[in-house]
């Protein structure tokens, strides 16, 4: 059987919030080591990959690999019933389960709610993501990245990201004119979560649809920092760490500059 007990249900709520607007139905693959999820948006421009290792759970048991086809809207309805400090237990049968049980327990043990979510059949392409050497890594505050994506959305549909030696520049343009926001590599680091790190091998200049980046920033509550990995001719990677026990990575295909 598959059984996973998460002490802080709030984490599962945050994970679901960060994937559900991008991927409606997702395959949650469970094995002895971790739960993984990979899904693409309907236009096959963006992909989300989530990894949550067994050590994130207070109790984790997976006798046989099992794949749960989750409708994220249905799962979200259940998790809306959970408080952040509720314990969440996921349970499913071993072989081709057609449903998954979720049990919510209040911290003081005085309230238990249980739900059964019907699993859905999902025929979706799973993509193999090659190991890539990126030309630039930018680590910054996740809140700042969210702010930049939101602010630039007022000016255009796309953002041009340019990395040079010490700087990363986010630019957008449209009918109102042009907006540029430049972040400079932090000279001193007082608080790691507020600093900017630009690690550059080669300069990059790429353009991406802001609509998707704004969806990616739904993961902001998961981590104080975000890492952008960029290479010319490769999808952008936007990574949020889930503590020491996993990550959410978003991949976004670039726009071809005119």
């Amino acid at each position: 059987m598959f059984e996973a007990k998460l002490q802080q249900g709030g984490l599962l709520k945050k994970i679901l919030e960060s994937v559900k607007d991008l991927v409606v139905d997702g395959l949650w693959d469970c094995d002895g080591a971790a739960i993984t999820l990979q899904g693409m948006d309907s236009s096959h421009v963006a992909l989300v990959e989530m990894l949550l290792r067994a050590e994130a759970f207070e109790h984790y048991r997976c006798d046989r690999n099992v794949t749960l086809g989750m409708n994220h809207n249905h799962l979200s309805k259940i998790l809306k019933c959970a408080n952040n400090d509720d314990i969440v237990i996921l349970k499913a049968a071993d072989q081709n389960p057609d449903s998954c049980s979720l049990i919510l327990e209040s911290k003081n043990g005085e309230k238990t709610s249980d739900f059964v979510v019907s699993l859905v059949r999902i025929d979706t392409d799973q993509l193999g993501i090659p190991e890539t050497e990126y030309s630039a890594h930018v680590k910054m505050s996740s809140g700042e990245f969210q702010r930049i994506c939101r602010d630039l959305s007022q000016f255009g549909d796309a953002v041009q990201i340019t990395c040079s030696k010490q700087d990363v520049k986010f630019s957008s343009s449209g009918e109102t004119g042009k907006a540029n926001i430049t972040l400079t590599h932090s000279a001193t680091v007082d608080k790691e979560e507020e600093s900017v790190t630009v690690d550059l091998k080669e300069p990059v200049d790429l353009t991406f649809a802001l609509r998707f980046l704004n969806l990616f920033t739904k993961a902001t509550p998961i981590s104080d920092t975000v890492t952008l990995s960029l290479s010319q001719e490769a999808p952008l990677v936007v990574e949020y760490k889930i503590g020491d026990s996993g990550h959410i990575r978003y991949f976004l295909a670039p726009k071809i500059q005119e």
Binding site: S43, V45, L127, G128, P130, A234, A253, P254, K255
Partner: peptide
């Protein structure tokens, strides 16, 4: 928009 690339141009199907 037509200038948007797709992920399949970069990643192969598993």
């Amino acid at each position: 928009p037509s200038n948007q690339t797709k992920l399949h141009s970069f990643f192969s199907q598993k």
